[in-house]
Design a protein around this nucleic acid. Structure first.
Lengths: 346, 346
DNA sequence: CGCTAGCACTCTGGGGCAAAGAGTGCTAAA
DNA sequence: TTTAGCACTCTTTGCCCCAGAGTGCTAGCG
C-alpha cells in the first residue's frame, strides 16, 4: 500500500487535499506549485495529478477545473498523511468549562456537550445518550395515576431517568405498588439492565410465580416497565452551522441533509456501531452508510463510565472538513464527558 | 373598517390571496378575471388592485409582476374573509389515532403530536411542554449519588417527570433523605408548583426552621430542587417540510429560518404569550416578533387540563400558508391533547 | 358614471453568443 | 526526468435581445 505512492506523490496529494480543505475549490497544478513550493513546475505536478487521478485519489469535476479529492483520497489522507494537532491548554480549559453536571439533568448536559461540539468545530454536534441496556439499575418507582394507569420511573446509575405510562388490567393499591417497588429495588439494584430483563424473564418461568399473587403482579409490571423503547436518544445541535459550508449552497443538497438529520434512527445505528471500536473513528462519505448526506464525514468517539462504553458522540461536517482540528476536539470532549459521568454519578 | 372596502373589493382581494396561496406566484388581473369569473374585465380588476395597493393590502414586487398580499392583506383575509373548513370525521379519526399515551412518556407523546402536526399540515409542527410552574406537585424523590450529589426527581400531576442533580454541602444519609421526601410528599401533594415554592420560602422564614435541623435541611434541599430552569421545552418537528415551500428556494432565507429555529427561547416566549388568549391565534409575519422568519406565519392554540391552560402548540409555515386547512388541524389537535391529558393523568 | 377595450410602457427571465479565465494533456527539448 | 510551450476544452461571465406578463392610462361605450 505504501509502495503505491512515492514520497513525492504523497506530498503533492497532501498539498492538494489541504488546499481543497482550505478553499473548497477544485485545485489546479499552478496553485499547488505556487502555494507549496517544492521546486517543481506546474507541468510536473500535472503529471503527478494525472497519476493520482488514475489511482482514484482525485477526480476532476470537468476537463478544465482542477482536481478534487475522492473518498479514497480523504481516506488515505486521514490514515497516513494527517497530523493531528494537540489541543492547547487554553483550548482544553475552554472546552471543560462549558459543562457542568450540578443543577442539571443528564440530558441537559448531553445537549450542552452537543452544542459545544458544534460551536467549537463550527460543524454539527452529535451526542447519543447512554442506551438503557448498557447501564445499571439504580432505582424504580411506581406512581398510580387515574384509571389503572401507572407512571413508572426508572433510574440508572449513569443518572438517566426514564419514565413511561403503563396500564394494568386490574388496579393495584398504592400499598401493593410500594411493596412491589421495594422488592424490585432490593433485588435488582446494581444489575445491568439487560441482566435485569433476563432475571425477570427467568423468574416468570418459575413455578413459584404461578402461586404467589403479588410476585406475579410484580413481574408483569416490571416487564411492562422495561419493554420497548428505552433506546438512546441523539442530540443534534448546530445544524445551521453546516449551512455556512459552500458545498451546501444549493437548496437540494441542503434539503437532503435536513431530511437525513430528521431520521435519527440511522444515526443511532451508526453511533452504536462506532462504539465498538476504540478511540476516535472517522467515517468518510459513503462509509457512514447514511443516505442523503453525500459529501459529509463523521468523526466520532465513545464515552464511558467505570464499567465500560455507554455512549458515543461526534461531529458531522463536509468531507472537506478540517480533520486535524476536529479530531482532537471530539477526542477530548469524549474523555471529558467520560470523566464527568465516571467520577460524579456512579 | 368594514367601510374601507366595498363588497366587490373584498371579493377581489379574497380571490387574489387565495390564488396566491395556491400558486405562490404574484397574481395578475387577467388571472383573477379568468379563475374567478364575476363578470368583470381585467381592466376593472386592475383598477381595484391599484386601490388595494394604495390601501396597503397588496404590493407589487416590481412593475410588471402582478400583486402579492402584504401582512395587512393576510391579516384582513384571516380576520374577515376566511372561512374555516371543518375537519371531516375521517380526518378527525386520522388525527386522534396517531397518539397514544400508554407505553410512552409524556415528552414522547408531545413529540409525536408535533410530528403529526407537521406531517398533516405539511409545514412545521411546534409543541411546548407544560411549564412546571403551571402544574401540580405529585411526587418527589431523592436518590443519593456519590460525593454528596443527589438526584432529585420531581413528578407533576400532568405526568411530567423532571430531574436534576444537586449538591449538598453536608452529606445526607439515605435515611434522612427518605424522611425528607416523605415529609414533602405528605405536605405538598396537590399544590400547584408556584404555591409549593411560596410555601417553602415562607417556611424558611419561620423561627422553627432555625432549630429543627432536619427541617432546615429539608427546606434547603427542596429549594435547590425547585429553583432554576424547570421551563417548558419546545418540540419542533418537520423542519424539512417547510423547505419544500418555494419561498425558501434561496439559501439565505433558509439559513435564517434554521437559525431562528435554533433559538427556542424566542419561540417559548411567543407560545407562552399565545397561551393567554382563548382558542386559535394567528401571528402573521412580523406579528410573531421573531427575527429571521420573515414571510412566515404561526398558528397556535393552547392545551389544558382540568385546572386550566398548561401549554401551547402550533404550526409554523409561510405567510402564504393554507390557513383554512391548518386552523382546524391546530384547533382539533389542541383539544385532543387537552382531552388526553385531562382524562388520563389527573 | 362605471366599465372596458386598446395601447404604450416597463420589468423580468431565458436563450444565444462571444470572450475571458482556468486548467488540462501532449509533445518536444533541456 | 523535468519542464516549457501550446493547442484544446470547459465553465463562467457579461451582454444583448426578445418574448411574456402585467401594468397604467385614455378614450369610448352602455
Amino acid at each position: 500500500m505504501t509502495t503505491e505512492l512515492s514520497e513525492r506523490n504523497r506530498t503533492i496529494l497532501e498539498a492538494i487535499i489541504e488546499e481543497h480543505i482550505a478553499t473548497a475549490e477544485p485545485v489546479g497544478s499552478r496553485t499547488v506549485a505556487r502555494r507549496h513550493p517544492m521546486g517543481l513546475s506546474p507541468a510536473t505536478i500535472r503529471n503527478v495529478m494525472a497519476d493520482l487521478e488514475d489511482l482514484g485519489y482525485l477526480r476532476s469535476p470537468h476537463t478544465s477545473a482542477g482536481r478534487v479529492p475522492t473518498e479514497k483520497g480523504y481516506r488515505f489522507y486521514v490514515d497516513t498523511l494527517l497530523q493531528v494537532r494537540q489541543l492547547t491548554q487554553k483550548e482544553q480549559k475552554q472546552l471543560s468549562s462549558s459543562y457542568q453536571l450540578r443543577g442539571h439533568k443528564v440530558e441537559e448536559v448531553l445537549r450542552d456537550v452537543s452544542r459545544s461540539l458544534s460551536s467549537i468545530s463550527r460543524y454539527t454536534g452529535l451526542v447519543m445518550a447512554p442506551r438503557m441496556e448498557t447501564t445499571v439499575f439504580r432505582h424504580i418507582e411506581f406512581l398510580p395515576l387515574s384509571q389503572g394507569r401507572i407512571l413508572v420511573i426508572l433510574v440508572t446509575r449513569s443518572g438517566l431517568v426514564q419514565n413511561k405510562i403503563i396500564e394494568t388490567g386490574e388496579p393495584l393499591t398504592p400499598r401493593e405498588l410500594e411493596q412491589i417497588s421495594n422488592y424490585l429495588n432490593r433485588t435488582l439494584t446494581g444489575l445491568p439492565i439487560h441482566e435485569v430483563k433476563e432475571k425477570i424473564f427467568a423468574e416468570m418461568q418459575r413455578e413459584k410465580a404461578r402461586y404467589d399473587q403479588l410476585l406475579a403482579k410484580t413481574l408483569t409490571l416490571s416487564r411492562q416497565a422495561l419493554q420497548g423503547n428505552l433506546d438512546g436518544e441523539v442530540f443534534i445541535e448546530g445544524t445551521s452551522n453546516i449551512l455556512d459550508q459552500p458545498e451546501f449552497a444549493n437548496v437540494e443538497t441542503m434539503r437532503e441533509l435536513f431530511r437525513a438529520f430528521e431520521q435519527k434512527g440511522r444515526l443511532i445505528d451508526l453511533l452504536t456501531r462506532s462504539q465498538q471500536a476504540e478511540g476516535v473513528q472517522i467515517f468518510i462519505g459513503s462509509e457512514t452508510g447514511l443516505e442523503g448526506i453525500d459529501g459529509c464525514s463523521l468523526i466520532t468517539s465513545h464515552y464511558s463510565n467505570r464499567r465500560g462504553t455507554i455512549g458515543a458522540l461526534g461531529v458531522i461536517g463536509p468531507s472537506r472538513m478540517n480533520y486535524s482540528a476536529v479530531i482532537p476536539i471530539v477526542d477530548y470532549t469524549a474523555r471529558l464527558l467520560s470523566q464527568m459521568l465516571e467520577g460524579d454519578i456512579e
